[in-house]
């Protein structure tokens, strides 16, 4: 039997995921449907140990999605505002390799 405590924790996790899904690049509906399916797939799991294991996976997904958002934002901003930097860096690297080769 699942304890009420565990049940509320699962619901909490589901809500957290749905909240995160609002910003999902492919849209909220896409995320919600997949999230719902993932939970529905395991709806018959009764073993508390098993539930905890599945929840830790859910928490892992939460962390991954947060990291995804951060990286997406960082990369977009970097591309928009620091355009020349990569070219400059590449040029510098190129120059230094040429120099080191000519030294030899």
């Amino acid at each position: 039997m699942t304890t009420p405590e565990l049940r509320s924790k699962v619901i909490q996790l589901y809500k957290t995921l749905l909240f995160l899904g609002r910003d999902y690049p492919k849209g909220y509906v896409y995320f919600r449907d997949r999230c719902h399916n993932a939970f529905a797939k395991n709806k018959d799991v009764k073993d508390p140990e098993q539930i905890r294991k599945l929840m830790s996976h859910g928490e892992f997904v939460v962390k991954e999605v947060e990291a995804l958002y951060y990286l997406k934002k960082y990369r977009t901003l970097k591309k928009r505002y620091y355009k020349d930097e990569d070219e400059e860096g590449a040029m510098r690297r190129l120059e230094s390799t040429i120099e080191s080769k000519s030294e030899k």
């Binding site: 995160l20 947060e66 958002y69 951060y70 960082y74 901003l77 970097k78 505002y81 620091y82």
Partner: peptide, 8 residues
């Protein structure tokens, strides 16, 4: 941009 990584 590179000062830190903002939390969610």
């Amino acid at each position: 941009l590179r000062l830190n990584e903002p939390r969610y």
